[in-house]
Nucleic acid binder design. Structure first.
Lengths: 219, 219
DNA sequence: AGGGGGCCGTCAGCCTGGTGTCAGCTTGGC
DNA sequence: GCCAAGCTGACACCAGGCTGACGGCCCCCT
């Protein structure tokens, strides 16, 4: 999951960030509500961890504004305010959960997993390449609407090209990605896979640079 | 909403019941886990309020048994145990939230409303997949009118596919959903479950992509 | 307490499609 | 025009997937 952490305390923030990263999620950490607003404008998060007391404003107002815009991303409130009225206000403002500081990191993990369990994700990022729509996470491709299926090795190859668009990749580099060091290929396996990829996606997707390697082509 | 309250303290129980009734929900109040099991067998609840310390057993075990059966009804734990480990155990056992006694009734209301917003917002959406009508909330499936029953694990699997239609799910991802990280499976358990699901719902429901994983199929 | 039934993990044997390999052909550079 | 490099259709093989069977376990009913 992609998680936005809004927390101005540097010690706590770092601890939380490390804990979440340890769970295998990716974390963006900001210390101001203004930065948080910017971050949410440019990226889509699966979960927001929100400290209520920040230098540039009340978190509750921020949360209410989010919900007012129709934002449905789950929000867990981190707060030192353990007064009942504050917690009620947070939940009524649209928070999915809250944790009172100081909290145990294990408990934070449990809460995040709980949210993750009931969360239905945001749409995956789609890479568009001419008529091709490529959803790497879903392992799905459509070519002008018609769905195309790739095999495991073909995905590895395509991913290699998409990760470095425009860059030239030698056959040796591609072999490194396809095969672990202990297995050996003594044939034109790479050429064969490139050929199959071109047949499925269109000849233009991969350009040959004679004697050097391949690169992603232009539509 | 229809709410099941499991609480043996008569004073607290009555107060909670009145509070919930005042919110416009209907409440069934039992004082023993055994009665709770009976009640859930004859009626379908939208929310369970569970006291952890009852005369006839540990609430955690009850909750785990519920989830083990594939019961998805939201559960809020009411407990006097405010130790972190208990809370974590509760959340990991499948609770959606907990409230530590003594709690403010207004806070209880806020929590209930939060759950209500989450679950009642879209009342029992029915997913249609060819001849299949799938009601995830009620855990009910009909295949061209004939009702089909799935086991707990089969539901978890099916849910995973339905939550991300079109997305490819690797065996590792499915394992994460079926098993908590501390248990390990060293066999083809996933394949076996997929096989059983296909037998019940039709071979087309899940497509295999060799070396990659599985995907929801088209009718 | 005992027994029966359902769920689920494991295993073995079968089946299948992806993949490496090869051969013959095409392409491009000099 | 020659040769090296790349392309691609064909094919066989085996890793990966499928499934019927089985037994352990837990729950429920008697």
């Amino acid at each position: 999951m992609r998680i936005l952490l809004i927390e101005d305390d540097s010690v706590l923030g770092q601890a939380v960030r490390d804990e979440i990263a340890g769970l295998g999620h990716s974390v963006d950490w900001v210390t101001r509500l203004g930065q948080a607003g910017d971050a949410m404008r440019v990226a889509v998060y699966d979960l927001v961890l929100l400290d209520l007391m920040l230098p540039d404003g009340r978190g509750i107002a921020f949360l209410k504004a989010l919900r007012g815009r129709g934002e449905v991303t789950p929000v867990i409130i981190l707060t030192a305010l353990d007064q009942v009225s504050d917690r009620i206000e947070g939940l009524n403002a649209g928070a999915d959960d809250y944790i009172v500081k100081p909290f145990d990191l294990a408990e934070l993990s449990a809460r995040i997993n709980s949210v993750a369990r009931r969360y239905v994700g945001n749409p995956n990022p789609i890479i568009t390449l001419g008529p091709l729509d490529i959803d790497l996470a879903a392992r799905a491709i459509t070519d002008a609407g018609r769905s195309v299926t790739l095999t495991a090795r073909e995905w590895v190859l395509l991913e290699a090209f998409l990760q470095r668009p425009g860059q030239l990749l030698s056959k040796a580099q591609l072999e490194d990605r396809l095969y672990s060091f202990d297995q050996s290929v003594e044939s034109n396996a790479i050429e064969a896979h490139v050929s199959r990829l071109r047949k499925k996606l269109g000849a233009w997707v991969i350009e040959t640079e004679r004697g050097l390697g391949y690169r992603l082509g232009r539509p």
